[in-house]
C-alpha cells in the first residue's frame, strides 16, 4: 500500500472537528491557567499562612505528578465524591490548573522583581496593599512574563493531546479514529501534525500581538 493523500478530503470534517476541540480546550485552559496563575502567585506571596497551605498542596499535586494522572483523578476520581464533570470540562480544568501552577512560578518571580518604589508610590497615594497589587504591581509583573508564559501555552497545546485518554475527541484522538477506519496512519498523523503546526503559528502570532500591544506601555 503506497501513500495516498487523496483520501484526506473524505475525512476532513472529522479532523477539522478534532481541530476545533483542540483549539477550544487549549484556549479555555490557557485562560484558566493565566488567571489561575495570577491568583496562585498572589496567594503564595501575600496570603496568610493558613490560606497558603491548601494551595501548596495543589501546587505539589500539579507540579509533582504526571498530567495524565491528574486528568484521571479529575475525571474518574471526582465522580466518587459526586462531582461528575463532562470529559472536556475535566480536561480544561486539569490542563488549566497544571499550567496555572507553572505560570504562577513565573509571575511570582516577576512580582518580586517589580521595583519596590512602585508599591511605595501607590501606597503614598492612599491605595491599600491589595489595590496597589491589583493596579500597579501585578500588571507590570504579568507584562514582564508574557514571553515565557507564551512558551507554557505552546506546551499546553501539545499536552492537550493527553485529554484524549479521558475520551475527548480532540485532534489526536480524531486522527486515531480515522486511522482505525482507513489504515492510513502516515497520512492522517501527518495531517494532524500540520494542524498542530498551524495552531502553533496562530498562537505565536497572538503572543506577538499581545506583546506589541502592551510593550508600548512600558
Amino acid at each position: 500500500m503506497g501513500l495516498g493523500f487523496t483520501i484526506i478530503p473524505k475525512y476532513l470534517d472529522v479532523i477539522l472537528l478534532g481541530c476545533a476541540w483542540t483549539i477550544g480546550i487549549t484556549l479555555a485552559a490557557a485562560i484558566l491557567s493565566f488567571i489561575g496563575g495570577i491568583l496562585f502567585a498572589v496567594i503564595a506571596l501575600y496570603a496568610p499562612w493558613l490560606i497558603r497551605q491548601p494551595f501548596r498542596l495543589i501546587e505539589w499535586l500539579f507540579m509533582g505528578t504526571p498530567l495524565l494522572l491528574q486528568l484521571f483523578l479529575i475525571y474518574f476520581g471526582l465522580v466518587q465524591i459526586g462531582i461528575d464533570l463532562p470529559a472536556f470540562v475535566a480536561g480544561i480544568i486539569g490542563l488549566g490548573l497544571h499550567f496555572a501552577v507553572y505560570n504562577s512560578e513565573l509571575i511570582q518571580t516577576a512580582i518580586l522583581s517589580v521595583d519596590k518604589g512602585q508599591m511605595e508610590a501607590a501606597r503614598t497615594l492612599g491605595l491599600s496593599r491589595t489595590e496597589a497589587l491589583r493596579k500597579v504591581v501585578v500588571p507590570q509583573a504579568v507584562r514582564a512574563v508574557i514571553p515565557p508564559i507564551g512558551n507554557n501555552m505552546i506546551a499546553l497545546l501539545k499536552d492537550s493531546a493527553l485529554v484524549s485518554v479521558i475520551g475527548v475527541s480532540e485532534l489526536t484522538l480524531s486522527a486515531q479514529r480515522v486511522i482505525g477506519r482507513t489504515y492510513r496512519p502516515f497520512e492522517f498523523y501527518l495531517m494532524a501534525a500540520a494542524c498542530y503546526y498551524v495552531i502553533n503559528l496562530a498562537m505565536e502570532w497572538l503572543q506577538r500581538k499581545i506583546e506589541r500591544r502592551i510593550s508600548i506601555s512600558r
Partner: peptide
Amino acid sequence: GMVFQHFNLFPH
C-alpha cells in the same frame, strides 16, 4: 503628596 528621587511613575 510625596515626590521621589526616582519618580516612581507607573510605567504601564
